[in-house]
């Protein structure tokens, strides 16, 4: 069964530090076949171009192991649009946002031009959630409803305080998916049962160990086909442009 970790951090940041060798070693130890790489804090907020080049190089070196989700801070305006477009043209696979660090509310239309780029290239957009007041599940749901042709990933399932907003966010938002990292086991068990075709395994390594996060997901269901979807199938579907039939 193919295993893909949808959230692994790359780079030497203020809080998170992880290089390619460490990521590959973790994948080997935990039986992970592929990872989605996301740049750490400084690249996410300020040095977007450098972050995207770091991802592009990693994906070029290990095309069978890594996907790269590009960064572009919407406060850069036209420059951000250009950077995201260049990143997708260079082969990166999606966009990655932590709006609480980048300084905008998910439902602020400042991000709309970047969503237009995602739509144009058929790329999904990952948003960190669970940090008030700028990164909330329902903000993401309303953004997702405005861009029905883009697939959105709700990072951390609204962990902790905002798990109560999952259902309202998923309601009438078929292009929204739930990523499991940092969520409590009970939340993961619930969403896998309720939304088996829309849950995606992720670890947020190194903030949480990949093996630990994988362990929670592996306990979530005894249904092999559901597990396969959570570990890889659901993500692969949206990486290929989605199937919202």
């Amino acid at each position: 069964m193919l295993r893909i970790d949808a959230h692994v951090n790359l780079g030497n940041g203020r809080y998170k530090k992880q290089d390619i060798a460490t990521i590959l070693k973790g994948m080997e130890d935990n039986g992970i076949d592929r990872c989605v790489l996301c740049p750490v804090e400084e690249y996410l907020t300020v040095y977007n171009g450098e972050g995207n080049r770091m991802l592009t190089e990693a994906c070029r070196q290990y095309p069978d192991r890594f996907y790269g989700f590009a960064v572009a801070n919407p406060w850069y305006g036209e420059r951000a649009v250009r950077m995201l477009r260049e990143a997708f043209e260079a082969g990166l696979h999606g966009a990655f946002f932590v709006s609480s660090l980048q300084g905008f509310s998910i439902d602020d239309d400042i991000v709309d031009p970047l969503m237009e780029v995602c739509r144009e290239f058929g790329r999904p957009a990952y948003f960190h959630t669970a940090t008030p007041a700028f990164a909330l599940p329902l903000q993401l749901a309303y953004l997702a409803r405005r861009f029905p042709e883009v697939d959105f990933i709700m990072g951390h399932c609204g962990a902790n305080d905002f798990v109560y907003d999952i259902d309202a966010s998923m309601y009438k938002t078929p292009n929204l998916y739930l990523e499991t990292s940092l969520s409590y086991c009970e939340t993961i068990y619930r969403v896998v049962e309720q939304y088996p075709d829309r849950v995606i395994f992720g670890s947020d390594s190194p903030r949480s160990p990949q093996g630990f996060e994988l362990g929670k997901v592996l306990k979530s269901t005894g249904d092999a086909s559901v597990m396969e979807n959570v570990l890889s199938g659901n993500l692969l579907r949206i990486l290929k442009g989605g199937d919202r039939s």
Binding site: C185, E186, P209, K216
Partner: peptide, 17 residues
């Protein structure tokens, strides 16, 4: 604060790691 002991096991593991 859940229906099972999963949370206790999970939290002990967090501390161990």
């Amino acid at each position: 604060a859940s229906n099972t002991g999963n949370l206790m096991e999970e939290r002990l593991k967090v501390l161990e790691l």
